[in-house]
Design a binder for these strands. Structure first.
Lengths: 134, 134
DNA sequence: CGAATCCTCAACCATATGGTTGAGGATAGC
DNA sequence: GCTATCCTCAACCATATGGTTGAGGATTCG
């Protein structure tokens, strides 16, 4: 029942550190070596190397060894899985759409599917929410 | 320098564990007590309680103490921030790989190794990326 | 060749995570 | 009041994370 998703674990974990998000952000502008990725970060090269490995482990970075340097490229496919997971909750923040649009500096999505809060078919033992009425 | 985002750190970290994602999934169907959240998980109540606290810390769960039970409600707003961050990378997995190539360094070769950054003083071309600061 | 460069590896350290158990505070129910 | 229930807290343990330094393999350059 408790469907395990080690892949999602790895992706979210990789994103849970600012240094790694920073690396991805910079990789979005083009391939970079480990040394270049490490440069702006205030940590040793070895530490940055570990972060790269975490990203690689999550499938977010692809490494190509070119002689003595390791060139890293962004592989964003795994992020799609993360977004897919998050998308499920979009309907729940509709009450705060304004907040969402404030963060997204882009025009909001038209209207994906349903914007209604939970009324769907999926009603997994919706317990009476004890204490709801006191 | 490396702009810190403790909020994003907390959200992504909260999502990086299957038990916590499972909790959010179930909370999407309605408010649940800590005990109910813990029930399907194969761990002690105390352990589940810690997970709830992690979610709470990330702002993903709102707790209302009702007598002796703690009722948890989903607060999905922080997820919007996570999605906003991820959305930036949509262009890269959206079959618009050409966009990547375009942003890629000046060398037009498809081989990322061509991103050969100078011999001595490399100058990684920094295209505008969100929140880029170094 | 010899030296500089890029990067990983291994050892080490401090702290965080994720789990357990046991104690117990606060309520609810009898 | 007494007891059962719900949940947190504290202590403890094992392992993971995130950082350091030092050694050194592999390349590239002079």
């Amino acid at each position: 029942m408790v469907e395990d998703s080690p892949e999602l674990d790895a992706v979210f974990h990789a994103l849970a550190h600012d240094a790694r998000r920073e690396m991805l952000r910079r990789l979005a502008t083009g391939a970079l070596t480990v040394g270049q990725l490490a440069e702006p970060l205030l940590m040793s090269l070895a530490a940055a190397s570990k972060h790269v490995k975490v990203l690689e482990n999550a499938g977010l970075v692809e490494r190509t060894v070119m002689g003595r340097r390791h060139v890293c490229r962004l592989r964003s496919a795994p992020l799609a899985g993360a977004v897919a997971w998050l998308r499920f909750y979009e309907r729940f923040w509709d009450e705060r759409i304004d907040a969402l649009e404030r963060v997204l500096d882009r025009p909001p999505a038209p209207d994906p599917a349903q914007a209604r809060p939970g009324t769907s078919d999926e009603t997994p033992s919706r317990s009476p929410a004890p204490g709801e009425a006191s």
